[in-house]
Amino acid sequence: VSSEIYQWVRDELKRAGISQAVFARVAFNRTQGLLSEILRKEEDPKTASQSLLVNLRAMQNFLQLPEAERDRIYQ
């Protein structure tokens, strides 16, 4: 997982004009609270716990989908 993931998520929230709650639900089936905590802490993926890595990997995989497909999912 790239250490850029945190910025990618922030950029996607702005680009798509969606809330953290929507992104958390569709990208990795978690709550806004968890996403907020992940973004606030910005732990280095190289030293992250296994559970954090699973979530970061799910977010990264979601962000690799084509933009149009992500936008459809947000609706």
Rank of each mutant, 00 (worst) to 15 (best):
R25C: 06
L34T: 12
Q60G: 05
R25V: 05
A58L: 11
Q32M: 07
L53Q: 11
G17V: 05
L34V: 13
S3G: 14
Q64E: 14
A21N: 12
K41V: 07
T47E: 11
Q32P: 12
A16K: 07
V22M: 10
Q50P: 14
I73R: 13
L65I: 08
A27G: 05
L56Y: 00
S49E: 11
V22C: 12
R25E: 13
G33A: 13
A48P: 02
G33K: 12
S3H: 10
E37L: 05
A48Q: 01
S36Q: 14
S49I: 04
Q20W: 02
Q60H: 09
L65H: 12
M59G: 01
L35H: 04
L39Q: 02
L13D: 00
N61M: 09
V54T: 11
I38C: 04
D11M: 15
I38N: 02
Q20V: 05
E37T: 09
A68W: 11
V54R: 13
A48C: 11
I18N: 00
V54Q: 13
Y74H: 02
N55I: 06
K14L: 14
S3C: 11
I38V: 06
S36V: 08
T47F: 13
V9Q: 02
W8V: 15
L53F: 06
K14T: 09
E12N: 00
Q50C: 14
A24P: 00
R30L: 05
I18S: 00
R57P: 02
D71R: 05
R10H: 14
K14E: 11
L35G: 04
S36F: 07
D44A: 07
R15W: 01
V26D: 00
I73D: 05
E43P: 08
S36D: 12
F28G: 10
T31K: 09
L53I: 10
S2F: 06
I38S: 01
R25T: 10
S2C: 11
L39K: 02
E37I: 03
E4Y: 14
K41E: 14
Q60I: 04
V26M: 04
M59Y: 03
Q64A: 13
A68K: 12
T31W: 03
Q60L: 06
V1T: 03
Q7P: 05
L53C: 06
L53K: 07
I73F: 12
S3V: 10
I38G: 03
E69T: 10
Q32R: 11
A24R: 02
S2K: 13
Q50L: 09
L35S: 03
I73T: 09
I38T: 04
E37Q: 10
P45Y: 00
R57K: 14
S36P: 06
L34A: 11
P45L: 07
R57T: 12
Q32D: 11
E12Q: 03
A48L: 05
N61P: 01
S19D: 15
F28W: 03
Q20Y: 08
S36E: 14
L65K: 15
L35N: 03
W8Y: 14
S49R: 10
L13Y: 04
A24D: 10
L65V: 07
D44Y: 04
E37K: 09
P45Q: 02
K41C: 07
A48S: 08
F28E: 01
D11T: 13
